[in-house]
Design a protein around this nucleic acid. Structure first.
Lengths: 319, 319
DNA sequence: TTGCAGATATAAGTTTTACTTATATCTGCG
DNA sequence: CGCAGATATAAGTAAAACTTATATCTGCAA
């Protein structure tokens, strides 16, 4: 009820004339009379002096004027704010990401996103997949970027497939052939990059299934450290493809194909609460991610592209 | 329409539960459902996530929350402001006064007023009666304190009667008797305090009517100067009673009764636009003035009080 | 699986509110 | 005195908001 009354109060106060204000607001004059009366009733104080030449605000009206302006203006402002949000030209984007995603894939995504939506403020939190799931459930983040996970209240929107690839140093015996068998790999010192990552178990299982029993292993707690270890010839490592694109392209590391060609990829997804619709910045982010995914898929699936060229493409897409 | 929607938005956001919010607001649950739906419609964005365990605000809702708070809070604040105004515990009091009133009668009045209404801010403008009338008409001041004036849009609320009295210095020949006739006065050097004041003409007429033709006169443009002239034996003067109470009481000037006892008083009033009702600080000021007027009248009319004592009373009332 | 508890959504009917049209009233002015 | 231009009032109609009753959804326990 009250809002229209305030607008009419402002119009009449501005014009000093009920009839003209009515015209301006596409209403009849008795309507404004009623509205003003209702407002005065609500406030318990006359706001206008009625004369035969128009209406003038009283002292009380003059005192109330700034409040009315602020209220109406505040509402308009709030509406504008939501419009910004809808067009993703404002608001916040809160993302949770597991370490590998946050460090290697996310920066490129956010670069594109920020270019398209410069006024959205972005915050990123990092944690392991379970922590990311928790954050998403509690709405501490709007999207959780990590490996696919199942939860009744969560839906997973696929982003890209992250593949484990074998990396060695340029002077390694595998480099020349460019391939290695699992048995050969089992003879090497193996460097693992994160005991808590699901990759850890996956890699172990792969080698166990290949009949390898005694592994020489070294564990570090982050991917960058693992890369450095390999570069310093301390061993070989299975690492996420997205994390090594640059090093391979720069020649610091060499990518070796595994002869058995085992399936060692994980689907990286965006976790989102099912009951919260993706709007504004969230929807915009997913769109950006989708666009990049399509490009990357096209690059990877094209048979005419050599591995090196694919890698270059990946550099574009992920760094 | 909109206001109730915002209140309900805040309540539901706070409680996270439609039914309980409905209870708190003494409404039924479907009503709140409808209100929220209307608000979301208006804003073009869902504000809540509906679940089987209650309602949670969406990102949009979170963004909008502060605006809603400010709007509702702003209205409450405005209402409180008007209440202050009504109780004269806030707001402004704008007064116009002619020089004599502003200098001698008003300070005492305002002292009382300010004691009773400390949070009202006061502004005083000074000018001659015609200027005061103008200010009042234009609502530059809410009350004009000056001599009674007639204007169709103005009403005059009597404050007190200001009387012209004859003042001489303590060593003057009139002092011993305490009285003087108009003829005797006509022989004195006469000091006038404001050519533009209506008193000027009034005094001249009085003496002219008493048959006095040749006046020795001196003119100054303010009452204080006139008093000083009398004190320095440059002549005698008819001055407003309210302006000389202190000087007489202090013995610097002596009050001489005029034997013909001419009527030389002017009604001092508060001018106010007829069409603007006296509310808040204005009403409060008039009440204070009224109370003082009654006390003063009682003091002046009491036959048991000597002149000296009357003067002391006037000191209380006007200084 | 089923049934229940606790939550929101929908439908229908009633009450209340808000708007419009038509008319009245007031006042300054020629 | 009557007119012009302003606001106020009255009555009827259209719209909206509220309530009651019912439906739907979901998590949870039997």
């Amino acid at each position: 009820m009250l809002f229209r009354q305030l607008e009419c109060f402002l119009a009449v106060a501005r014009l000093g004339n009920l009839s003209r204000a009515a015209e301006e607001m596409y209403l009849t004059q008795p309507t404004l009379t009623a509205r003003l009366k209702a407002l005065e009733e609500e406030l318990g104080e006359p706001l206008f002096v009625r004369t035969s030449r128009g209406m003038r605000v009283t002292e009380a009206g003059r005192e109330f004027l700034p409040y009315a302006t602020r209220i109406v203006g505040g509402f308009e402002e709030g509406k504008r704010r939501l419009e910004e949000l809808r067009g993703a030209s404002g608001g916040r984007l809160r993302i949770g990401a597991s370490p590998g995603v946050g460090t290697y894939a996310l920066p490129g995504l956010l670069e594109r996103f920020a270019a398209a939506h410069p006024r959205v403020s972005i915050s990123v939190r990092t944690g392991h997949s379970e922590a990311i799931l928790e954050m998403t459930l509690r709405e501490e983040v709007q999207l959780g970027l990590t490996r696919a996970m199942r939860h009744p209240e969560i839906e997973s929107l696929p982003l890209y497939d992250d593949e484990l690839v074998l990396l060695v140093d340029p002077g390694h015996r595998f480099t020349r052939r460019g391939t290695a068998s699992l048995t050969e790999i089992g003879e090497e010192q193996l460097i693992f990059f994160d005991h808590d990552s699901s990759y850890f178990e996956q890699t172990h299982a792969l080698l166990r299934n290949a009949g390898i029993r005694e592994l020489r292993t070294m564990e570090v707690d982050n991917i960058e450290a693992a890369k450095r270890m390999v570069e310093h010839r301390l061993g070989v490592a299975f690492l996420p493809r997205t994390a090594v694109v640059r090093s391979v392209s720069a020649g610091n590391l060499v990518l070796i194909a595994v002869e058995e060609n085992p399936e060692m990829s994980r689907s990286i997804v965006a976790l989102k609460r099912r009951d919260v619709p993706a709007t504004g910045p969230v929807a915009a982010f997913l769109e950006v991610a989708d666009t990049m995914g399509e490009k990357r898929d096209a690059a990877q699936l094209s048979p005419s592209l050599a591995t090196e060229f694919e890698n270059l493409q990946l550099i574009d897409l992920f760094t």
